[in-house]
Design a protein around this nucleic acid. Structure first.
Lengths: 221, 221
DNA sequence: TCACAAACGAGAGCACTGCTCTCGCCATCC
DNA sequence: GGATGGCGAGAGCAGTGCTCTCGTTTGTGA
């Protein structure tokens, strides 16, 4: 985390960033699964083996990109969380998810698409991953989203989660936010991955409609 | 489509199936993106170049697997569409999606995960792809799911789709089924792709709860 | 019946991949 | 002012998708 003081540390840190940037650029044109270490190295005018001084494997580079992507999305949603009413905030936050996803489709696919096989997301990814949905939980809390009936097992299970993210919210409301979050994710993924082609594509109208319905469903309206 | 009459045609057809089966087996252990033509060939005791007599490229083999997967899922859902009440049918159909996905996670990832880069789903995939959601539309129709307010643009857009799938359903009900469908897909994907780890995982309880809520939302309850 | 054409499997080969290892070079720290 | 360790370059390994060529097998039309 520390910037490092010696010239070597500084250079190392900068080059690490440059590698990630180049990889992101590569990602944008090629897609996740053909992200080639050698191509990234080539773009930077270095030889592929040199990259291994910075990332021990391709998967580690991917992990770094995944964390950055989670944070970028989380930050975008947090920044968009504004508005006079909870309903407005909800709509803005949800729209931010879609906007970011459309602008960074390959990075979105990286984090929310099929996981790279054999690749196990390390624990370091979960904190960044949770930023975006946490915003929705916060809005629901601000709106005073009500509790609702829940099977006892589910209530206990979700209570544990609520404690972990430190949001005070009726468990029933949280369950509904999770439903809304999965809906949002499913809808954006469908749009991005072309499952909507031939039905609700372009999806602007459908997206707005769905977001408002889910706001009602959660009790943010 | 025809079985073919000559011995050669028959052999070709059988070998095509064997290749797909071997590929599916490979898929189950390795995942989509490292499905290796050479490994498939090796498993069949043939040489990689011989495979190109049956599938012009790796992507074409993938396309064949995708179509099969869509059909398998669609068939599973159609078969599960039973029950005394629409609510029961809804729950059974949705559960079938999850069950199939859990039992064939790599095939599920193939069709609903991030698309293989550079790969454009040919038009041949859309008919099989539409089987599963069509079941839900049918249940909503049988339940007499009501219409609801819809922005005019969205109504027009969805009317076109309704005509294409030949289901008589109020447009507003269809919009809600689409929301439910994206929710279902998002939830299953989250579970499969490990996004639920640490929250609602295992997801059985949450799944059942969500399915029932969406049934209410659509008006199948 | 028999020749011709099409389909077939094997093999070599091309350009590419992730990754490892070894080599000199040079900044850093004792 | 050395020893140490980080660094980039390069060669090399095993694997990939895909192409081309070659001899063989199979089906068909004359």
């Amino acid at each position: 985390m520390s910037a490092g003081r010696t010239a070597r540390d500084k250079a190392r840190h900068e080059l690490t960033q440059e590698i990630k940037d180049a990889a992101r650029r590569e990602l944008a044109t090629e897609g996740a699964h053909q992200l080639s270490l050698r191509a990234v190295a080539r773009a930077l005018g270095m030889v592929s083996s040199a990259l291994y001084r910075y990332f021990p494997s391709r998967d580690d580079l991917l992990t770094a990109l995944i964390i950055d992507a989670y944070n970028a999305l989380g930050e975008a949603v947090e920044r968009a969380d504004q508005g006079a009413t909870p309903a407005e905030r909800w709509r803005n936050a949800c729209t931010a998810v879609r906007t970011w996803a459309l602008a960074h489709r390959h990075e979105y696919a990286l984090i929310y698409g099929s996981p790279v096989p054999g690749y196990q997301a390390p624990q370091t990814t979960v904190a960044p991953a949770v930023r975006a949905p946490t915003v929705l939980l916060g809005i629901a809390h601000a709106a005073g989203a009500p509790d609702s009936g829940l099977p006892e097992n589910l209530r206990e299970q979700l209570n544990g989660v609520l404690g972990a993210v430190a949001v005070e919210l009726p468990t029933g409301a949280m369950a509904r936010v999770m439903i809304a979050w999965t809906q949002l994710f499913g809808m954006v993924s469908f749009e991005l991955f072309g499952q909507l082609v031939g039905s609700a594509d372009p999806a602007d109208e459908f997206f707005g409609y769905a977001v408002d319905r889910m706001a009602e469903f959660v009790g943010v309206a």
